[in-house]
Design a protein around this nucleic acid. Structure first.
Length: 544
RNA sequence: GCGCCCUUAGCUCAGUUGGAUAGAGCAACUGCCUUCUAAGCAGUGGGUCGGAGGUUCGAAUCCUCCAGGGCGUACCA
């Protein structure tokens, strides 16, 4: 049992004893050491319930509190009625010891064991290479998945795509035209076709393989198929490079083939949510409190994206997941409310569907904005970014900000291999530790020796230990709130505490007993940094 | 017009779900390498938490209004 658990248990029993309901115990870490390690505002919360002064209630709680020295060394009343708890150092050391035993497992939990989650992200149609905009969603999605796995979820990573429709026809036609151009024909290339150089590459590959035998092929089918295969292969390669892979590629087409699309319209119609106007089929969102109705099937007979999206979400719900997550960019903000409304109107639960919307990425270089346009050729692909700054930096920068804040990706900063770059700051702490551990082995110290952890009394050591043992709570909170940046912030703080410790406390010294204790401490730091970076999909190098 | 998001130090951003004196990193200035990696550490300066009300013991955090910025508001995805 940890000190924190002990305190909560004691406070809860106080509430129970006084038959107080509707008040929950909030125990938080303190900002300032003079307020101890944990504080609760319970007395102030109870002031109204008990109709007594907070300070008096605090006194009552203090008197009822069983002060067990192996968990709590001191309990003080402060300010308007805070109860400040000082954790016993014995308990700190025993938690540190647990950390060392758990090693790779430290930070992981089984709190959500047995639950299944599905997370859909990237989901770009195969019309071109992944861009930086996709990158943020990709890294965010994968990291949320990793976090959910860390607290016990079984996670399915899913990519939803559509290889039919207008976009893909234009793609095929783009390749066909480039193919003819490459063969020397003088043909103009429309502005609204895909301008990227990758289209020419695909055309050249076709020439390599088929020569000019496709010249009179009037249909762009083969061009489309080749483009799709080629682009998808590239997308998968990019994702692999980012450090993960998808479990399911879900083709929108299968929803049509299985009649799921028609079924949605039919069922909604039965419930009176469908109307035909101007030769189009409308979903009557206005009946559900929205300001306007939405078209589900165009007058051309083609469905809008909302219809298959609804069918897809129905399928996801039917697959029985405990948690369904969609990761979208801010430009899709308008798409999900009516889709969820449709799913709900069909009688399915939607409470367990979480939509994570991330804001855009702005690339800057030395303060200047780097302009990008997907249609034109001047966008920077995710691969080019990784070529430029590396995978670790790419992932870190995409994760370091809250997802609903705009991300300013400073290329110049990302490129610097120096102290200015926060990724290296964290990795450097890990590398430094590895280096000391190697040296320790050379000098005959062994980590296996029994450590007298109680020798770790310096303030820098105590702070480090306290931060280390709070890692599991950070992971849990980060996962349950779908906020990967919390782990990033945590690791940066940990690295900072370590670097401070490093300059003040010499690990390998004449004092063997202290040296061994400190070796255990830095081993613990190494474990947590490695585990944390692993959650983010970032490497923990042993040398830099 | 309407919807969602954002506004915290000169710049880029954290802020433990409502707590005690609001914190980092850059940038500026000043120190610290014959000692385990200086990709590091220590120090100085820098704030009306966009503005105004409200809720309460207590607000950067919750509610309302206003201002500024981003993204949407298609029979595009």
């Amino acid at each position: 049992m940890t000190s924190k658990e002990y305190i909560i248990e004691q406070l809860s029993s106080f509430l129970e004893h006084h038959k107080i309901e509707g008040v929950s115990v909030i125990l938080q870490k303190t900002k300032d050491e003079k307020f101890g390690d944990y504080a609760t505002n319970l007395a102030m919360q109870l002031a109204r319930h008990l109709k007594k002064k907070p300070v008096d209630i605090a006194q009552d709680i203090k008197e009822a509190f069983v002060l067990n020295p192996s968990y709590v060394s001191k309990l003080e009343i402060a300010g308007p009625g805070f109860l400040n708890f000082f954790a016993s150092t014995d308990n700190l050391f025993s938690q540190l010891s647990d950390l060392l035993t758990q090693e790779k497992e430290f930070g992981r939990s089984v709190s959500q064991k047995g639950k299944r989650a599905q997370i859909e992200f990237v989901s770009a149609n195969p019309t071109g290479p992944l861009t930086i905009g996709h990158g943020r969603g990709a890294v965010l999605g994968d990291t949320v998945a990793r976090l959910l796995e860390a607290i016990g979820y079984e996670v399915t990573r899913e990519y939803y795509f559509n290889n039919a429709g207008r976009q893909m026809r234009v793609l095929g036609e783009s390749v066909r035209l480039r193919y003819l151009q490459e063969l020397g024909e003088d043909i103009s290339f429309p502005d609204d076709h895909y301008q990227g150089e990758y289209i020419r590459d695909i055309a050249r590959d076709l020439i390599k393989e088929f020569g000019d035998s496709l010249k009179d092929q009037p249909e762009s089918t083969i061009f489309k198929d080749r483009a799709e295969a080629s682009i998808f292969a590239e997308i998968k390669q990019t994702i692999k490079r980012l450090g993960f892979s998808f479990d399911v590629f879900y083709n929108e087409r299968s929803l049509y083939d299985q009649g799921k699309i028609d079924e949605v319209v039919r069922e909604l119609n039965k419930k009176g949510f469908i109307a035909c106007r101007d030769h189009a089929t409308w979903f009557l969102t206005s009946k559900l409190g929205f300001d306007q109705d939405r078209v589900f099937v165009k007058s051309t007979g083609e469905p809008t994206y909302r219809l298959p999206d609804t069918a897809y979400h129905v399928e996801k719900v039917k697959r029985g997941f405990d948690l369904i997550i969609d990761v979208f960019g801010a430009d899709h903000i308008a798409t999900y409310p009516d889709v969820l409304a449709a799913v709900k109107a069909l009688g399915y639960k939607t409470e367990h569907i979480k939509v994570l919307i991330h804001q855009f990425v702005t690339l800057t270089e030395n303060g200047e904005k780097v302009k990008m346009s997907t249609r034109k050729a001047n966008f920077i692909t995710l691969d080019e970014l990784m070529d430029d700054v590396g995978v670790d930096v790419t992932r870190y920068f995409f994760l370091m900000r809250h997802m609903n804040a705009h991300l300013n990706f400073d290329l110049a900063l990302a490129r610097t291999q120096s102290d200015e770059n926060p990724v290296f700051y964290i990795q450097y702490a890990h590398a430094r530790i590895c280096s000391i551990l190697e040296l320790a082995t050379e000098r005959g110290y062994t980590i296996e020796q029994v450590a007298r952890l109680e020798r770790l009394t310096a303030p820098e050591e105590q702070q480090l230990i306290k931060h280390l043992i709070s890692f599991p709570q950070t992971v849990e909170a980060s996962a349950l709130n779908y906020e990967p940046h919390r782990v990033v912030t945590y690791l940066f703080e940990l690295a900072s505490l370590f670097h401070k410790f490093y300059t003040v406390c010499r690990v390998l010294s004449e004092d063997k007993e202290l040296s061994v204790a400190r070796l255990h401490l830095i081993k613990a730091v190494k474990i947590v940094i490695a585990n944390g970076l692993d959650l983010l999909g970032i490497s923990a190098p042993e040398h830099m």
